[in-house]
Design a protein around this nucleic acid. Structure first.
Ligand SMILES: NC(=O)c1ccc[n+]([C@@H]2O[C@H](COP(=O)([O-])OP(=O)(O)OC[C@H]3O[C@@H](n4cnc5c(N)ncnc54)[C@H](O)[C@@H]3O)[C@@H](O)[C@H]2O)c1
Ligand SMILES: NC(=O)c1ccc[n+]([C@@H]2O[C@H](COP(=O)([O-])OP(=O)(O)OC[C@H]3O[C@@H](n4cnc5c(N)ncnc54)[C@H](O)[C@@H]3O)[C@@H](O)[C@H]2O)c1
Lengths: 224, 224
DNA sequence: ATCCCTTTGTGAACCGATGCACAAAGTCGG
DNA sequence: CCGACTTTGTGCATCGGTTCACAAAGGGAT
């Protein structure tokens, strides 16, 4: 084990949120056989400012070479390690309806070290079905399944009414990372990370800007 | 004469992103018959700091009563109007696969003034199917469908490879609001708003924090 | 009408994030 | 080995957003 680098401490949240973006761009470059990339080119590929990209990367360490750029393979490895993608994460999807099914069938997870390890639902019609090669288990088995499969990340795709209860139960068995699709504010201890995806909110934000564009006759168009 | 309010100018982006959250909380309260709410209570329901909530609302105008709070119905109306939800928005979903289907079948859109007005796909197997009461149309008809149905917001749920091309085409016929699910950085003119939803990124952010917790000061993996 | 209590709306300090601009560091051709 | 050139890494000014804390505003009781 290498000694703990002071680098690892305190990576800004905004930087963490962009690392996956860089990683995706880098994977694309690696596939196209690009060996080295400048901050300028990588920034364009990731859709960000190049100074921001350099500052972001500087938080992980000095992995670039002045006058040359960054070694693609090496940077992929460093970012992956920083994000914790060098290990395998077991994910459980609770609520196997329209959305839960789409997620279960999605190949994009596995490609980044995430493995859908369990599907859980309350509906007897659904329990026992096989979806994406996985057996759907009963919500009564929730705690047992999470422990047995070593699940550390739970995706909530139940109706809004059920989300808080499921959330409480998974936290009680030690889960501290939750991705929530239900349109509710989950109440959790500080030690638990919740990220939410809310489609409806995204559309409303778009509508706001759209209205503004259409509304004002000669309004300054400022966006993004 | 000119009904343009100076209030409408320059609502911070961060505020706009939270208005839908307040709206959701307010709808819940209205349903439960609550007539008036304090910034403190509404803040709790929306999961934010109360000072932040008050500042956010102050950007729309002075709609509260000191010593009392905010009238729920009135505030719902004001926020809805500000977000442009008093009008009906026609949404097209392009790419009717796993995810597109889930979105098409989702009832949560309609409830906020968003109407799925068109489904478009390239696969002959899918084109012609009826999903959620809508006929899936061929991608060749994309421009015609958008114009005919008055679509102003496009949801992209195609594979990553097809996203940029579809994006270019809808922009060419005047669409300026796009919600993108494909894991690519779309290149668009400044006048176009793109919001992206990327599941994989959310999971990676969770993994980062999860790794940190596990690898931290004490190996507190001990659940229960 | 007056006083007390509640709650808003906001000035101001604070904090993290962004982006410019450049010195330092390295490459490469000659 | 040197000098021209490229590109990183970062100091610094700036900006947008958050939070505190409180004066001002209103309601209700007496
Ligand atoms: N479908 C979408 O596009 C979409 C978009 C945005 C948000 N959402 C949200 O995602 C969630 C799921 O949406 P959906 O369209 O898949 O709904 P859905 O009704 O199709 O599926 C919900 C599933 O959860 C199961 N369920 C109910 N109670 C449960 C419990 N206590 N424990 C475990 N499972 C339970 C149901 O049996 C059902 O299979 C909802 O909260 C919805 O608001 C969905
Ligand atoms: N399913 C998920 O949970 C999930 C999660 C995150 C991201 N995504 C992303 O969302 C997108 C869709 O995912 P999916 O699982 O539904 O994929 P999918 O393959 O099931 O569906 C894609 C659909 O798009 C259609 N299509 C292909 N080319 C097209 C074109 N040029 N024009 C119109 N339609 C076209 C296909 O016929 C297919 O029906 C992908 O980019 C995926 O990476 C999906």
């Amino acid at each position: 084990m290498s000694p703990s680098q002071p680098r690892d401490r305190g990576i800004p949240e905004a930087t963490v949120a962009r690392l996956p973006l860089y990683l995706r761009a880098l994977h694309g470059m690696a596939e196209r056989g690009v060996a080295t990339v400048s901050s300028e080119d990588l920034a364009v590929a990731a859709g960000v400012n190049s100074a921001k990209l350099r500052k972001d990367l500087s938080h992980l360490g000095s992995y670039g070479t002045r006058g040359v750029g960054y070694d693609v393979e090496y940077l992929v490895y460093q970012i992956s390690r920083e994000l914790g993608l060098t290990q395998d994460w077991a994910v459980a999807i609770v609520g196997v309806g329209n959305l839960g099914r789409a997620l279960a069938n999605y190949g994009g997870f596995v490609s980044r070290g995430f493995r859908v390890a369990a599907l859980v639902d309350a509906d007897p019609e659904v329990v026992g079905d096989t979806i994406a090669g996985l057996n759907v288990e009963h919500i009564d088995e929730l705690e047992a399944v999470i422990k047995r499969r070593g699940v550390s990340i739970v995706v909530l795709a139940t109706p809004a009414e059920a989300a808080q209860e499921v959330c409480d139960r998974v936290i009680a068995v030690g889960v501290t990372s939750i991705l929530n699709f239900a349109p509710v504010v989950l109440s959790v201890p500080d030690s638990v990370d919740v990220r939410k995806v809310d489609l409806s909110i995204e559309l409303q934000i778009l509508a706001f800007h759209e209205q503004r564009k259409a509304g004002g006759p000669l309004m300054a168009v400022d966006s993004q």
